[in-house]
Simulated scan of single mutants.
Amino acid sequence: MDDRRLAHVVTEVLSPAVVVVLLPFAVAWHATGHEFGPTVLWALVVAVFYSVLPMAFIIRGARRGRWDGHWVREREQRFVPLLMCLVSTMAGLLILVFGSAPRDMLALAASMIATLLACMLITRWWKVSVHATVAAGATATVVLLYGPWLLSLVPLVALVCWARVVLTDHTVAQVIVGALLGPTVGGVVFLLLR
């Protein structure tokens, strides 16, 4: 498999949409004391409102030609998709709050919103890698919950960064800033709120 093909596979398999579906299950499993029913319930709320609905909106917009594809490569086209992500995540947060979700789930939701807001702010002037931001932020979150042995996921963050550069969707600087942004915004907010 050549580098570009591998980079495409990595970009899809370790995309923010996939990571943001899986991460809530890891957090909910810890937050509910490993109870299956509550884990699935809270994880699904976050997965649907923080990943599934935003991606459905983005894909629909890409198919209608509103932006250049489901990863919205052009910085100038990113504001509306990111704004829709924010609206959806805020709705999900309200469901978590009024549903009395576990504290770690609320912390996760808030950390993801804080990270999204940081990405939106940066994107006004510069194109930060959301792939790198989400991968690194998710890694920081599971390390905080389950311990330093999950630092073993860091090579996957590096792989995501490599893929985004190989595909020329981002520069080295854009993936480095993204990889630092996830833990410093998302990780810190998660740590402070849990």
Rank of each mutant, 00 (worst) to 15 (best):
A138R: 14
L22Y: 07
G182Y: 00
M55K: 09
A28E: 01
D104Y: 14
W67K: 09
P81V: 07
A109S: 13
H70Y: 11
K127C: 01
R64T: 10
S100M: 15
L181A: 04
F190Y: 15
V40W: 02
A163C: 13
V52M: 03
F79P: 04
L121K: 08
Q77T: 07
L6V: 15
D169K: 13
A132H: 00
R124L: 00
S51D: 03
A114M: 10
R64D: 05
M90P: 06
L159S: 10
L96W: 04
A101S: 09
C119W: 04
L159V: 11
R4C: 09
V40K: 12
W149M: 14
R63Q: 12
F36T: 03
A163H: 04
I59P: 14
W29Y: 12
T141D: 01
D169G: 12
V157C: 00
L144E: 03
L41M: 12
I58M: 10
T32P: 07
V134Y: 05
R78E: 03
V130E: 02
A56S: 10
V143P: 01
H34W: 14
V166C: 09
H34S: 14
L82G: 06
W42T: 09
V160E: 05
G187F: 04
T32M: 06
M120W: 11
P155Q: 01
V19Q: 03
A114R: 04
G99E: 03
V21R: 10
V188Y: 04
D68C: 11
L153K: 12
M55D: 10
L83D: 05
A110R: 07
A91F: 12
L117Y: 11
L106A: 02
H34Y: 14
P38E: 00
A132F: 05
M84H: 15
E74T: 13
G137A: 06
H8E: 13
T115E: 06
V97N: 08
P183I: 01
A47Q: 08
G33K: 14
P183W: 00
V130M: 04
M55H: 08
A173S: 14
V9C: 11
H34R: 11
G92A: 08
T11M: 00
V48W: 02
V189Q: 03
L150H: 02
H34M: 14
L151N: 10
V52L: 05
C119Y: 00
L180H: 01
A173Q: 14
V87K: 10
V21P: 08
H70E: 05
A110Y: 09
R73M: 02
V48S: 00
F25D: 00
L192R: 15
L192D: 13
L117P: 13
E76I: 15
T168F: 08
M90C: 14
V185L: 05
R4K: 12
C85P: 06
L116G: 10
V165Y: 12
G178D: 04
G99Q: 01
R66S: 01
T171F: 09
P16S: 10
Q77K: 14
A179Y: 02
L151F: 12
A26P: 15
S100T: 15
R4I: 11
A43L: 02
V46H: 02
M120H: 05
L6F: 15
W29E: 00
G187R: 06
L144R: 09
A132T: 03
T39M: 07
W126N: 10
